[in-house]
Amino acid sequence: MLAKRIIACLDIKNGRTVKGVNFENIRDAGDPVELGAFYAAAGIDELVFLDITATNEKRKTLADLAKKIAGVINIPFTVGGGVASTEDVRVLLQNGADKIAVNSAAFKNPELVAALAKEFGSQCIVVAIDTKQEADGVWYVYLNGGTVATKTTCLAWAQEAAKLGAGEILLTSMNHDGTKAGFALDITRAVSKAVSIPVIASGGGGTMAHFEDVFTTGAADAALAASIFHFKEIEVFALKSFLFDKGLLIRL
């Protein structure tokens, strides 16, 4: 049976991991390739590399990075961050990325999702959605790294993205991100039930029990976290063993 996935996210700036900390076991935690290889060996199911660099050189840096990662890492990885065109995606896939995450550009131009799915196949197109629950209780889509609000509901955009040919939804709750207070179970569940493609929950995972909750109550297909892994607050293997013992399908 299909296992629930645990995904580590690495933020990249100018080719270096940010938020990276001191790992005794690796020489350079700032090297995304080395950190990624460390997680792969530790049993992580997938990796996401998110480029937060804001320069014109970005596309080439990211492509070079994808190629280095593909050379070393023997599990699937997604690359994202400012991906805006079919050409961006082509270059990244040609350089060995398995999947590409598109966020603001997909929302601003939904036809991009359809074009990407047609050209490269849905399996490699991950639509990333940053969402925030406003005072009215409704979850809205936010753009440009969460700085720009929209009037579109998260649910509506997720359903449209799936219909356009997205292969997966990477759903980040801005209300929960960084809080370590648990994932956004309600919106994760609502999106997961509303679309027929896998949903990756992101934001808020702080304890092992939070991951159990997001797979059960939240109906997530995968759960993503960054700093709790980077700061070794939770070890990948210990987390997966915990979830396995709770009766979830987990690859150990």
Binding site: M1, A3, Q123, S196, D221
Partner: peptide, 15 residues
Amino acid sequence: LPNGTDKIPQVGWNT
């Protein structure tokens, strides 16, 4: 074929 619970395509680790 959709069965109402499993997502299509299958994405991930299976035995």
